[in-house]
Amino acid sequence: MIEVYIDGASKGNPGPSGAGVFIKGIQPPVELTVPLGIMSNHEAEYHALLTALKYCTEHNYKIVSFRTDSQLVERAIEKQYVKNPLYAPLLDEALEMIQQFDLFFIKWIPSSQNKAADELARKAIQKK
């Protein structure tokens, strides 16, 4: 099973943002850093999710287990609902992509267990 760690970061809220994705279970592990422009931290978290989903679908991974330190994103995916209308299109896009997997899991983890993705997200901010 492919394990995908995602994180979004913003320098300021809103501010310059980045997405970090760390994928293990393949050799070599994949590290993605994506500058996102000016947005809130929560938006950056969603964009990290979308970045990882796109990468996994493009590489034909069918069984994936995602890890995030964003309870907002994890709960939105599990409940298939968001209160804030700003995040609704991002959630809808994610849910559509998730349907392409044979098995998809998402789990909240503490930030201390998501250091690789966090570092990549912070590096993405510096790329701008």
Rank of each mutant, 00 (worst) to 15 (best):
I26Q: 03
L90R: 08
A124L: 07
I125Y: 07
K107C: 13
N13A: 11
L49W: 02
A76N: 03
M97P: 06
Y61R: 01
A94E: 08
V82Q: 04
K127S: 10
V64D: 08
V21E: 03
Q99A: 03
S10I: 08
T57A: 10
I77H: 01
G8T: 00
Q126W: 03
E93Q: 15
F104P: 02
K123W: 10
F22N: 03
I63G: 00
L90N: 07
W108H: 11
I26C: 14
I2P: 07
E78H: 14
P85W: 11
K11S: 14
S10D: 01
F105W: 00
P89T: 05
L95T: 03
F66D: 09
Q126R: 13
G37Y: 09
F101W: 01
F66K: 01
G18V: 02
V21Q: 04
V34Y: 10
C56Y: 06
Y5L: 14
E93A: 15
F105R: 12
Y61S: 06
E93K: 14
A116N: 10
P14W: 08
V82M: 09
D7N: 05
E45A: 01
H59R: 06
T68G: 07
F104H: 00
N114Y: 06
W108C: 05
A124C: 08
D102N: 11
F66Y: 02
Q99L: 13
Q126F: 09
L36S: 07
Y55W: 15
K62N: 15
I38V: 15
L72F: 06
L50Q: 05
